[in-house]
Amino acid sequence: MAVTEVYEFYQRMEDERIILSFKGEFTAELLTSFLNILESKMIELRIDSSKKKRVFNVLIECFQNLYHHIAITDYNDDVLEIKKSALVIVKHYEGDFIVRTGNYIENIKINDLRRKLAMVNSLDSDELRGLYQMKLANDPRTDKGTAGLGLIDIARKSKSKLNYEFIEIDEFSSFFCLKVIIE
């Protein structure tokens, strides 16, 4: 990248209304910093408290997914290092917040994730609430200790359909792109 391209890069982010972004490995501490920065930004933008909480909830669950579910095996250390890295972008445009995430995923896990995404997208808000309640009451924890409610919660709090795409990288892995709009 030429020296001046940083300006173009900056300008692009500006045009895209990106208010916060991070690329790298997701750690437990990162979420706290992310929410802190966003909290000040929300005050500056005079975002009402219930919307702020909806955006935070979506981000919290996205982070939780990135933190717990990025597990790429069968690679040498160098590749693993890259594949543990993920991207999260927060945009603010005309009152809407858009959270976008990108991360590597093992191909063998795609079908299951696709099924979950298609299911939450097929439900309206009452049905999502019913599903959440049912799973909360009856489902055991996953082997990672999580509740298995993340995507349902993201769909409920965003009040919009989830946009997603899987880009195949090689025979083992793909890149999973998720876009959540909080109006």
Partner: peptide, 13 residues
């Protein structure tokens, strides 16, 4: 509570 994650929601239950 101000807000909580889904993992906590299970623990609260």
């Amino acid at each position: 509570l101000e807000y909580f994650n889904t993992s906590s929601s299970k623990c609260i239950l």
